[in-house]
Amino acid sequence: MMSLLRPIGITLGLLLSWQLIVWLTDAPRFILPGPLLVFNTLIDQFPLLMKHAGVTLAEILLGMLLGAGLGLISALSLITWGRLRRWLLPVLVISQAIPVFALAPVLMLWLGYGMTSKVAMATLIIYFPVTAACFDGLRQTPTGYLQLARTLGAGRRTQLLQIRLPAALPAFGSGLRVAASVAPIGAVVGEWVGSSTGLGYLMLHANARMQVDLMFAALLVLAVMALALYFSVNLIARRLTPWLNESTSSVTRGDTP
């Protein structure tokens, strides 16, 4: 019961202090709108907000799907082919020195102002963390498991699919969680740089017309969306690794024997 009351209490407290600041400083509504005003705008402009939120959500989800899929495939390839690993791993690491945001204008140029460039942004920003997490997970399979599989007559393919892959699922789950928290950044930055729909576009547009209340409402929708995304991914990751939740002692929690 307490665990439910605490977040509600914190939220109410923050909203109250927000409203208090607005009252006390008498800030104009185009600098800092109060929570009540933002809430009103949220309800008034709900259809508009949802229309743009839908676009952003689609970009984020597509980006996550592509980024996580490509990341998993890359990690599996890197583990399977040693030669590929020696050539590709340094390239991957160096490529991380280029900030993905700096690529946004180039992506607009190449892929246009539509959804494609935003999906590409989200994919790119997710790809590396997922690949790194999966690769580490696949590489750190306890040797004992692999030796046992060898004495049981398992070939390399079987070892990869039946031992290494399930053993790496907890790491893949962590990669997905990171992906869920950075994917919205990729999509929104993409929209800022150039688009005609999406929450990022709506925020810039509202800002230019001094509709700060609408901007805050869009921000609120974005935050709720990101939270929902994170918790859904967290749920999926836990479903993927049921043995981690059931474990009663800390000794057996996904450690290496």
Binding site: P142, L148, L152, I163, P166, A167, P242, W243, S247, P257
Partner: peptide
């Protein structure tokens, strides 16, 4: 081969761990 550690795969049930040889074949 039986090692000092039990090397049971945490994602499989006890029965499936016993059947591991057949599963990996």
């Amino acid at each position: 081969w039986m090692a000092q550690q039990d090397l049971l795969l945490p994602w499989l049930s006890v029965l499936d761990n016993v059947l591991l040889g057949a599963r990996l074949q």
